[in-house]
Design a binder for these strands. Sequence first.
DNA 1: CGTAATATCTGTAGTCACTACAGGATCAAG
DNA 2: CTTGATCCTGTAGTGACTACAGATATTACG
Lengths: 132, 132
Amino acid sequence: MDGFELTIGKLSDQTGVKIETIRYYEKIGLMPAPPRTESRRRMYNSALADQLRFIRRGRELGFSLDDIRALLGLEDRKPTCAEVFEITSAHVDLIRTKIADLKKLEKTLSSVAKECSRNKTPDCAIIKTLFS
Amino acid sequence: MDGFELTIGKLSDQTGVKIETIRYYEKIGLMPAPPRTESRRRMYNSALADQLRFIRRGRELGFSLDDIRALLGLEDRKPTCAEVFEITSAHVDLIRTKIADLKKLEKTLSSVAKECSRNKTPDCAIIKTLFS
DNA sequence: CGTAATATCTGTAGTCACTACAGGATCAAG
DNA sequence: CTTGATCCTGTAGTGACTACAGATATTACG
């Protein structure tokens, strides 16, 4: 059930989360402080490995550490399904906004870049646009 | 030509860049240190206002301060048109990559969210997916 | 002219999510 | 037994600001 057999290095290899990051998560309370050996080395079990993988997945999906904290139920209590949905859809909204913003940027920038003659003078249409 | 008649507050109003940010740009060498009054207050002219607006436009288009530094010719010399184009198209590539990444995220997240029953239990499909 | 509100000054610390050391202790392999 | 890998703590750096604290200076109003 809970053999604490993983060193931080093995945990790092298993989960793809860097050692420093694991310690950082512990420091900010996103991971619990695990038991230590006599020489104060951290030892982890598979449940903690699961939690760390959860965090990593969440980060890959762009959730903030605060979101993940809430999803893990570390705030005050385990969130209800409705609350999880709330967090997730707020996050999706954020992503959609970001995409829209970036698309606008891309459009503007590529049309500006089209005007550029790409020659060796410092007289550049892009610069002129930015200065206008 | 160069009446230094703008206080930092007026410059801030004219350009939409916050006072603290203007001072920060000066500190990191993105804006020159302007002349001061007897009581050491900064005074700006329209050329400096133009430069600040340039920086602001660049930031709005998502350029990094380092990019902007290069575009302004603060590195070593004024960039050629070809170099400006280089910076710009590298930036556009970055934006395109970001858009692609975010789109993937959005897809994953909204399909995960669809599975969610939105009820009052803590038994949530989203959480299960993240833990799987 | 006095006072009060506003503007500016410097310097430092906080944000987010790590990352990169420095300097020391401990462990495993040969 | 020695060497190299791993781990420890603590601090500082990243980017691009933002937010103070505490001091000074200017401006507006009565």
